[in-house]
Design a protein around this nucleic acid. Structure first.
Lengths: 191, 191
DNA sequence: GAATCGTCGTAACAGATGTTACGGTAACAC
DNA sequence: GTGTTACCGTAACATCTGTTACGACGATTC
């Protein structure tokens, strides 16, 4: 009856399949089975397969936004906030490792699709701007080039680390990821 | 007539589709069309679709290996070699941006597939070990933890930067990527 | 109580996909 | 010339996929 709740349940099924089986197995029928409903309901809630991806992506983006905003609000200093939100983006727990897989699924689905690429760019720039804002607060006297480079390095390293870790957690443990984050923040003068 | 040459041509078609249309559009027929042959020939050269992915991946791995070994041989110092091979892994040119997309396609195809994941881990550890060897040569007095963390950071940052860049080259230009690499090497004391 | 509307499950459909089987063709051996 | 073999293109097959259409069921309204 509650359409929004149904959409959310279906989007969670999309995440689950993306993380567990990969984008190649993301079919309407698989989503319906995972969500515990029929393909009919899925198609009544979403106009098509791509809308499924878009909504699941938007929802995940919104979730991480509130999570990150809470971390930011709870942090004592901009530097603590910076570290907290970057750590949140890595694959430190089972859940965040799965999220990294989901993001990768969205990314893989975006190749060759202008609409999804545009969506990715928009969301990713929001993320980068958030990190940039915190870096600016943490080091207000830096010039723009230095800030931009540090932001790029931090965003790239955390994203890359998450990806490496979720495919080879033995080689790249949670402790190793945190060590990377801490040494980078220290090396760039943001610790 | 030359089976190996045919396999290579077909694998290049796989790369092309992976970079241009994404893994979801990687079908036998699309590969055959891209390679300029029939699906019959593709299936005579490869036992199935997954073998297509595996061979294309192995071939790309071998290509980057010889490229990286030449860069390493031509470098004057271990630090120069380190920078050269890491730069090679970023999306600094149109070709390397496409390669980053291809790697992502392989990665996306590996989700939920134990055989492909194992292959990815093996190849990726080879890559990490190569970086580790150069870091060790560049900073022989470091303890193992410090080395491992630096290696992880460098590998993660370059891979992450390549991924960010190939989806949003305006925001993450080649110059910005090189700035990230240089500042990271400097920050970790490896410049 | 009858009509109407929203909700959703079932089934169908057209097209695509991986894979297999078969047939033709050219080179080669004798 | 005839048989044999390797090669590969065509077509078929079963299955899967996204999407659409239709009908049943329940609530609501008059």
């Amino acid at each position: 009856m509650d359409h929004e709740a149904q959409q959310e349940r279906i989007s969670k099924a999309v995440w689950s399949i993306l993380a567990g089986k990969g984008i190649e197995h993301l079919t309407i029928r698989a989503v319906a089975a995972e969500a515990g409903c029929t393909t009919g309901l899925v198609m009544h809630r979403f106009p098509g397969r791509k809308a499924l991806l878009v909504h699941a992506r938007d929802l995940l983006h919104a979730r991480t936004r509130v999570r990150v905003e809470r971390l930011e609000a709870e942090a004592a200093t901009p530097r603590a906030a910076l570290r907290a939100i970057l750590a949140q983006g890595m694959a430190l727990t089972e859940d965040s490792a799965q999220e990294a897989l989901v993001w990768m699924g969205f990314l893989a689905a975006s190749v060759g699709d202008d609409e999804l690429i545009a969506l990715h760019r928009k969301n990713n720039r929001v993320w980068r701007d958030r990190v940039a804002r915190l870096v600016e607060a943490a080091a207000p006297d830096w010039d723009e080039d230095r800030r931009a480079t540090a932001v790029f390095a931090l965003v790239a390293a955390t994203e890359g680390a998450a990806q490496l870790a979720c495919f080879d957690p033995e080689t790249y443990s949670a402790a190793a990821q945190e060590a990377v984050l801490d040494t980078m923040l220290a090396a760039y003068g943001l610790a």
